[in-house]
């Protein structure tokens, strides 16, 4: 017997589902990519969701139907077979269904895994811009080795040009994530990770440290501005003519645990990034990860 409570409960649940599904708009960062990597990942998310839904939706409908049809009511005329517990054909069918779906999804996944390997350079006629990102407690240091400038908690990039991020950490590990450009990659001490991303259109994008790293972890956010090549060069020269340089001492101070506002430096010590990486490399066999090959 279904009580009133059950009726209200089911009704309310349906209502919530509808509201939730309608709330699924395309303004979500991950579903609104602005670069080729992010776009591919969005496509992959959509494809795999559809593949899953092919099984999911019928199963949920089937559940509702079975529960309704075979409820224990005195006047229920549906069949009742208390000992029917085996049917080879049926069981082969539902071993086969997930095997097929997972098989298809597996093939797609493997293909994309190789295609979207983060350390693989992007196809472009432009030379990639190198940005070295170091996660500190609790701020991001970005150094532009070719331009010779450094920033804290802020990146400016030219649009339509591949960016080669080199990632490391001088603090507990973190994860470098700009959702609208593409997926994240961990920053780890003593390791030099590579992540290629690209912005297809100018705009201001949200970036953050995604992996928990201690008290002020919530402050590890940064803004990514993608601009035209000209604006980018202009910005570089502006930064270069700025008042402060990052010295080794300055870096040591910067690395101390604290939060930081956006900062720019007109220069930084030679080989700072390599020094940070090598600081933690001890003995042999310690390197790990998708280093440059």
């Amino acid at each position: 017997m279904r009580s009133k409570l059950t009726k209200y409960g089911i009704g309310l649940l349906m209502l919530i589902m509808t509201v939730m599904l309608s709330g699924c708009s395309s303004s979500m960062m991950v579903l609104d990519p602005k670069g080729p990597i992010g776009a591919d990942q969005r496509d992959l998310i959509v494809i795999s969701t559809i593949l899953c839904a092919v099984v999911l939706v019928p199963v949920i409908i089937l559940t509702a139907w079975i529960v309704w049809r075979y409820r224990d009511k005195p006047d229920n005329k549906a069949a009742y077979k208390p000992t029917w517990s085996h049917n080879t054909k049926a069981e082969i069918t539902w071993w086969a269904i997930p095997i097929i779906v997972i098989g298809v999804l597996g093939v797609i996944t493997v293909k994309y895994t190789y295609a979207l390997e983060p350390s693989k350079p992007l196809e472009s006629d432009k030379k990639p811009l190198v940005i070295q990102a170091t996660s500190l407690d609790w701020k991001w240091l970005f150094t532009y080795p070719e331009e010779g400038i450094a920033t804290v908690n802020y990146i400016k990039i030219p649009e339509d040009r591949p960016i080669k991020f080199q990632l490391t950490s001088d603090a507990p590990m973190n994860s470098f994530w700009i959702p609208q450009l593409g997926g994240q990659m961990y920053t780890m001490s003593g390791m030099n990770m590579t992540l290629f991303l690209q912005a297809d259109e100018p705009g201001s994008y949200y970036g953050s440290g995604a992996n928990f790293s201690g008290p002020n972890f919530a402050d590890m956010r940064f803004q990514v501005d993608a601009t035209s090549d000209d604006d980018f060069s202009k910005w570089v020269s502006e930064v270069k003519s700025g008042p402060t340089a990052l010295t080794l001492d300055g870096y040591e101070k910067l690395a101390e645990p604290s939060s930081s506002a956006v900062q720019t430096f007109n220069s930084f010590p030679d080989g700072l990034y390599d020094k940070i990486v090598n600081k933690y490399v001890v003995g042999e066999g310690h390197h790990h990860g998708s280093e440059e090959k």
Binding site: T113, S175, P179, G183
Partner: peptide
């Protein structure tokens, strides 16, 4: 549903966007 989102997470390149 939870299992399906788990399958989505297991799609490694997509996990780069879901992780954390």
């Amino acid at each position: 549903v939870g299992g399906m989102t788990g399958v989505l997470l297991s799609v490694a390149p997509a996990d780069f966007q879901f992780h954390n």
